[in-house]
Design a protein around this nucleic acid. Structure first.
Lengths: 243, 243
DNA sequence: TAATTAAACGTAATAATAACGCTTTTAATT
DNA sequence: AATTAAAAGCGTTATTATTACGTTTAATTA
């Protein structure tokens, strides 16, 4: 009998046999905000696998049979930075048949936001990894330059509507630093007075008593992101919108 | 020599050998706007492959070695509806290790927006496919219910910022129909007068002389989406924002 | 103590949004 | 021929948000 519940299988005969095994990789666009230079940077390293071994590349890995893609992405992030519990999101998939001259590889693009000061510097060094400012990215392997562009666009769009930028700052930060960060992400100047008003009036930033005096005589108050307050506001319909 | 440009390969020895071949599939959340019922619907069909053959399912396929994922998604869309040149976008990837009990399958979620009236009804029939209203989706195979939820959220977010809804309407449509469509997508009522004002004041809808008299004595003017006008506006910084 | 400088605060003009009411059109009915 | 009904289309105002600036504050140092 070649029928299942009234469907003629003779006509529509796709089976698991038809699936061509394909290599699946993840590539991770790791963003960090350099607190000294006040620049948005991406962590790159020198590719170890032929073809194009030795060229600058995103940090990636094949997805293993015992892990999800997200886990694979987390795994390499931890391996290279020592960090766990990090903002990590899928942003696009790259599947052109000849994108990787070595084999048929589909790559899942993830981006993550880390606090540069928390990473394990030794790890980054031992992998010959290096931070590059987003408009000084060298020629990368395969389609990795495109991936960074796509990840940056995703980061920009998401940043305008959700306060994810805080993942790039230390626990305690100042409003001027936050402003600089947003200007770097959005690649556009923002009016400092209007920015301060909007971000503070929302009500999910807690001002601390301490000040950061490293950049001015007056000193800038430390603030902390209050995630509970933010979620409460979202429940009530709040949503951040930056220009 | 086990070094490439100063990198000790003994420590970092990932190669193509480490890639586990995985089956890669695409699943397509096909949205259509039923012009009579004025409801947003999704096209489902009965799964032909074990396990769970005979259950309702999204329309999917394995990615073949000679096609990109996007092409695979297009291929099955055309196979099932007869349509080409359709709005089609990747929205998420599903990679849990045991999501598909039949094999290790990573699935790339695509969603497409089609004009129900243009589809080949015979094709849909011959595949035992059926349109389901978005809040009457039956229990689906594997994680397909979740995929529809995710696709709907993506559609909602995108619709608020880009005029992609027009892909669900015929060339010529009326403002009341457009309003109904947006209310269906966003699952929320919109003030008809404010909606009309916002969408018409933008300047990328051309009013035609003809009217649709099927739903009222007065008749509603036909409008057409002017994509050149829209792109010109976007260049000047315009962006649609719906509540 | 006056000058300096980043940080913090303030305000008025303008624009966008939300929440409504009112008029128009025309086929169908009286 | 006048009336009705129902959708379509237009208009107004109050409120809120945004923009584009000027001013004050606090600590430091010349």
């Amino acid at each position: 009998m070649n029928e299942i519940k009234g469907i003629n299988l003779a006509k529509h005969n796709e089976t698991y046999q038809d699936g061509t095994p394909i290599l699946v990789a993840v590539d991770n666009v790791i963003f960090g905000f350099d607190p000294v230079e006040e620049k948005l940077k991406v962590l790159l390293f020198k590719r170890q696998v032929e073809p194009q071994a030795g060229n600058w590349s995103l940090i990636g890995s094949f997805v293993q049979s015992d892990e999800s893609a997200e886990l694979a992405s987390q795994r390499i992030l931890t391996k290279f930075t020592g960090l766990t519990d990090v903002f990590l999101e899928h942003f696009n998939t790259y599947s052109d048949i000849d994108r990787d001259p070595g084999a048929r590889v589909i790559s899942l693009g993830y981006y993550s936001l880390i606090r540069i000061d928390e990473q394990k510097e030794e790890l980054v060094q031992s992998f010959h990894a290096q931070w590059f400012h987003i408009d000084e990215i060298p020629d990368l392997v395969i389609d990795h330059n495109q991936m960074i562009l796509d990840a940056l666009h995703t980061l920009q769009n998401e940043s305008r509507r959700k306060p994810i930028g805080f993942n790039l700052l230390p626990e305690k930060f100042t409003i001027p630093k936050l402003l600089k960060l947003y200007q770097e992400i959005l690649q556009a100047p923002l009016d400092d007075r209007n920015f301060r008003k909007k971000i503070l009036s929302a009500g999910y930033l807690d001002r601390l008593d301490s000040k950061d005096k490293s950049t001015s005589k007056k000193g800038a108050y430390h603030y902390q992101f209050n995630i509970e307050a933010y979620f409460d506001l979202v429940k009530k319909g709040y949503s951040l919108v930056l220009p």
